[in-house]
Simulated assay, not measured.
Amino acid sequence: MPRRPRSRSRAWRAERGVGAGVLLALPMMLLVAALLVYPLGRLVTVALGPPHGFGNLAAFFDHPANTRVIRITFLDSALVTVLCLAVGAVVAWSLRVTERRANRLLLWTAMIVPFLMGSVLKLYAFTILLESHGVVNGALRLLGMADEPVELLYNRFAVVLGLTYQMLPFAVLPLLAGFRTIDPELARAAEGLGAGRLRAVWDTVVPLAVPSLLATGTLVYIITLGFFLTPEVLGGPSSPFTASLIYQDVFEFYDVTSAAVSALVLLVGSLAVVGVGYWVVGRERLARAVAA
């Protein structure tokens, strides 16, 4: 009886097939579907579902308190973003060019220590500093700059100050990564040609840092939009953020639809900021800035 020829074994390939790729990606796909796709879909169906469908949006914006909260949230977040970019750029560039170890240690300590502190601890520290009989008011009276206590707490000033302090490390660290790709000799060369230090940095460093600045601003703005504890503690009822409005709708008024509309407005606003960043800078440059 003739012997059957042995079947040749398939040659080994480094590339996996489509089925193997789908199987390997399946756990992540299920995780994304459970934690991202379904919650977002549920949010949209609740916000635009019963009782009035798209009329829920009109009913939400017809309420003056809701529009005031949304306006405060977006405007104060924009102000915090500008302040963080301005201060963070100075600190990050100083860390990039300074050669003195003591200066670098001082700057790193000023950034990292608040970053590692708990939010509650930082907020109550600000409360002690800004209250009517706190440290700042005591210093103002001691210097003769104020006869009566200045209202520094439970207003938008306190909220912006607290948010800027908390978000500053989130601005410094990405900006420092972006500045490391820029040669400081460019600014020194501009100074050698007669430009002042500020003009040299503005003309040589800032144009090259635009993608990093925009990516950092997008990150800071989106995170700031969702803050809850800082506006509650430092602002009180006078400076509510949208997160406070959502909490109030869910746990006090039991109005889940209004809370879903508020969350949807925040989501659309965040996506709009990201879209503007892609449009102004470009996808590739913005991705490189974030990856840096």
Rank of each mutant, 00 (worst) to 15 (best):
L219F: 14
F251G: 00
Y254L: 13
S262K: 06
S239F: 08
P240W: 07
S270C: 09
L266I: 07
V265T: 08
F253A: 15
T230R: 09
Y247V: 01
Q248L: 08
I246D: 00
V268E: 00
F241V: 10
V250S: 12
L225K: 06
S239Y: 08
G236K: 05
L219T: 09
L267V: 13
F241A: 09
F251S: 10
T224Y: 04
V220T: 11
P237E: 10
G217M: 12
V265D: 05
V273A: 14
V268R: 00
V256G: 02
I223F: 15
A272L: 15
F227T: 06
I222A: 10
L271V: 08
L271R: 00
L266W: 03
E252K: 14
G226Y: 03
A263I: 04
P237Y: 10
P237G: 06
L266N: 07
S258W: 06
F227Y: 15
P231V: 12
V256D: 11
F253K: 14
V268P: 02
V273C: 08
F241I: 10
S258Q: 15
Y221P: 02
L245D: 02
E232S: 14
V265Q: 05
V233W: 02
V233G: 01
T242R: 01
S270I: 05
S262V: 03
S258L: 11
G269T: 03
A263C: 05
T242L: 13
T218Q: 12
S244M: 15
Y254K: 06
T242E: 03
L264F: 12
V261R: 12
L271T: 00
S238Q: 14
I223M: 14
L229Y: 02
A260W: 09
G226K: 02
L229H: 00
L267W: 03
L245S: 04
E232T: 15
V256M: 15
V274Q: 10
V233S: 01
T242F: 00
Y247R: 07
P231C: 11
A260G: 01
